[in-house]
């Protein structure tokens, strides 16, 4: 029992360290898209690990915590995808290091579709 709690606490600590890495990455990365990359991946795993740690410490609460993990895993990539799509659409510039932009040259994607009512 003690051991399980300790493992849980250490998992939570790992999660919080990953969240710290995410925030450092958010500060260091040069443009919006790279920041989104770091932000999505690291915050998702960091939060999932923190919640898993709490499950290990308090096994009685697993229901809501599992739901929370599912929710984070479902919503966080979708919201960053929507953000990335919006920021490409309003032409937020890339960093100078960018080597290729296939979305610009693709004829299929250049045609912006609108919903008509």
């Amino acid at each position: 029992m003690e051991i399980l709690e300790l493992i849980g606490a250490i998992t939570t600590l790992t999660g919080s360290l990953i969240l710290l890495v995410a925030s450092i990455g958010l500060l260091r990365m040069p443009d919006v898209y790279n920041r989104l990359q770091v932000g999505t991946k690291a915050t998702t795993l960091g939060t999932i690990l923190s919640l898993l740690g709490i499950i290990l410490i308090m096994p009685g609460w697993w229901g809501k915590l599992v739901l929370l993990i599912f929710f984070v895993m479902m919503t966080s990539p979708v919201s960053s995808h929507v953000l990335a799509r919006a920021s490409y659409f309003i032409k937020i510039p890339f960093t100078d290091k960018t080597v290729v932009d296939k979305l610009k040259v693709s004829a299929k994607a250049r045609k912006v579709e609108y919903e008509k009512k």
């Binding site: 990359q37 991946k41 960053s80 995808h81 990335a84 994607a109």
Partner: peptide
């Protein structure tokens, strides 16, 4: 979603 969460890739469109 899997692409967005895996190494170094992010779905833009």
């Amino acid at each position: 979603n899997s692409i967005t969460l895996t190494p170094g890739t992010l779905t833009v469109d």
